[in-house]
Design a protein around this nucleic acid. Structure first.
Lengths: 346, 346
DNA sequence: CTGAAAGCGCTTACAG
DNA sequence: CTGAAAGCGCTTACAG
């Protein structure tokens, strides 16, 4: 271990011929420092390329400068995108980011999380879907005084603690897009009943169909659980019925891809025999043939905003936290699985 | 912020009626403590559910209890698997894990990394492919006294600092599998020239073909760059030739999937018109139709071993680090893209 | 505007 | 086997 010892605040103070308190003032941008002093200290800092030890800072301030993304979600690309969104902003503010996957179905999940937060001295957490839906977790965090931001699919009252994606807009675009291509029998593979996003997208689907004056056949709404497998099963039952749909809107890409695989196995051509739309824009979606029409949630932008909100909170600046925008509009992405010429050519 | 203050070593000492040094001895499992003392202190620890503050420990020991996974790899599922492998072991040893993506093509990449490691006081790093290939990075780390473990595709001399996957075994299985199904014209889409894994797989492919007494036509080895796009392009050129192959072995799944999309667009049926094999076992591979025959690298197991090696190093136990196994054998996974009945039925 | 003192929660010497 | 002192690199609260 030859790691050369990094300079401390004392080294800088000695070099500049001032007290360490003065150095502390400069590195924290405190007011009431003479310009002359500032320059002198700054040049000493530069000379020995000093950077404050955040461990020591944390110890005095009883903060850790650690924030965490907490989630229970098998979707690797979603999680990575979320991470990338938060990472840069966190680093720029001197915070490090800790990923914390967990099993939220465990009965001790919330207690375990609170223990983790206590032991690691985490300053704040970003909650990804679906655990961000949990009102209980949110209130436990609030009660423990732990800063947090939730990623939600419906607006909640607490603007300082949430970012939400407005799926309604995207679902409307999907239905309009399909209707425009002549589809009247549009089925929906919805996500699980305990998922806010699934419920939200389902509700918006019904509204959008009504807006297009289209009737939703009762057997055309099928319950999935966001897995590939459930997409296969749901599509098989839809396509085997007496009045199969001509288009399927699945509540996520996994199920949409399952639906496509099911159709292909049955010899149904996509998109001529069946149009399919997903939701997520997973990497998969653009790497299959035909490529999947879907919706990009802009997860990266969401967690970037979430990190801004969170760190504002950590700094005790709650009004700044509330001022960070909290709505992100998803983007509809048209690809080949719905690529039939519009019936109303322009 | 109502966060109740956590008990410190002083609280425990007071409660147990001993000095804090004694408490320190117990929590660090030091020898030379009377059994009676140990019990008394332990019950005080339990009573106030004390856990040591690793920030303070780190400050005295000039350690951070932070390790990092450093990588430049767009493959989200690879990175997540790597993370999951390391995470549990790190936590169990009181270390937190920081993900550090970087752009290794930048001319300042190595300097930036060294700065990151210095500033964050990272105790050690796990290097994922392909940046783990860099001998320069390895020597810079060694010189700076930073612990590290590299994930490699070929064995290197330094057993304490590497984990490697033995691709040769898997490539042999692939070629034998294809040969057994009657394929004689087997093409290879190799990865980029600066990638050790690509070079390794290419070399092993040639050896395996020879072992099967199969000739590799020169135009049947095509250079890709591990991207989906290059898989499409490579396959298009292979399939448009006068003597197209009946099977393609691509050096990763991304390119294999590109090859399949290219074939499907040209109206070639998989696997009857063309067999395809990938390498990686990405989530994608099992979610397409037909599903992709590929190789699972057991990334999770590799980073779990890597974490063991790394933390042994961090604790100054270099012989323990060298004792952790450093070879992982990939698993061949047969799916539908090669699903033609064997010509030699048993 | 600047600084000397005390403390954050742990550790490593060093006594006894 | 146990403990009192000093220190890790920062901070806050208080003087001047």
């Amino acid at each position: 271990m030859l790691r050369t010892k990094r300079p401390s605040i004392n080294d800088v103070a000695r070099l500049a011929g001032v007290s360490k308190k003065t150095v502390s003032r400069i590195i924290n941008n405190e007011p009431n420092v003479s310009e002359k002093m500032r320059r002198k200290v700054q040049s000493a800092i530069d000379e020995c390329s000093y950077t404050p030890n955040s461990q020591a800072r944390g110890l005095s301030l009883s903060r850790s400068f650690l924030v965490s993304i907490v989630y229970d979600n098998p979707n690797a690309s979603y999680v990575m995108e979320a991470m990338y969104g938060a990472l840069d902003y966190c680093r720029s503010q001197g915070y490090e980011l800790i990923m914390h996957p967990c099993d939220f179905s465990s009965p001790t999940a919330i207690d375990d999380l609170m223990t983790f937060i206590g032991q690691s001295k985490i300053d704040g957490v970003i909650l990804l879907q679906p655990i961000s839906d949990s009102a209980e977790l949110a209130s436990r965090l609030k009660e423990a005084g732990c800063n947090f931001v939730r990623l939600l699919s419906t607006r909640c009252e607490d603007e300082a603690n949430m970012i939400y994606h407005n799926d309604g807009i995207a679902v409307n675009q999907i239905v309009a897009h399909l209707a425009e291509r002549g589809h009247r029998q549009i089925a929906h593979i919805r996500g699980p009943l305990n998922s806010q996003s699934a419920n939200q997208r389902h509700a918006e689907f019904l509204l959008a169909m009504e807006k297009q004056s289209l009737v939703v056949a009762e057997h055309h709404v099928v319950l999935g659980d966001y897995t590939f497998r459930s997409g296969i099963d749901s599509a098989e039952s839809l396509l085997a019925s007496n009045s199969p749909p001509s288009a399927i809107f699945a509540s996520n890409d996994e199920m949409a891809i399952g639906a496509i695989v099911a159709a292909q196995r049955m010899g149904i051509k996509i998109p001529t025999g069946l149009a399919v739309v997903g939701f997520d824009d997973s990497p998969h979606a653009s790497r299959m043939w035909p490529a999947l029409t879907t919706v990009n949630l802009r997860v990266k932008e969401m967690t970037q905003l979430a990190a801004q909100k969170l760190i504002a909170q950590c700094k005790g600046n709650n009004s700044a936290a509330a001022d960070v925008p909290c709505e992100v509009k998803p983007i509809f992405i048209q690809r080949q699985t719905t690529d039939i010429p519009s019936t109303t050519p322009k």
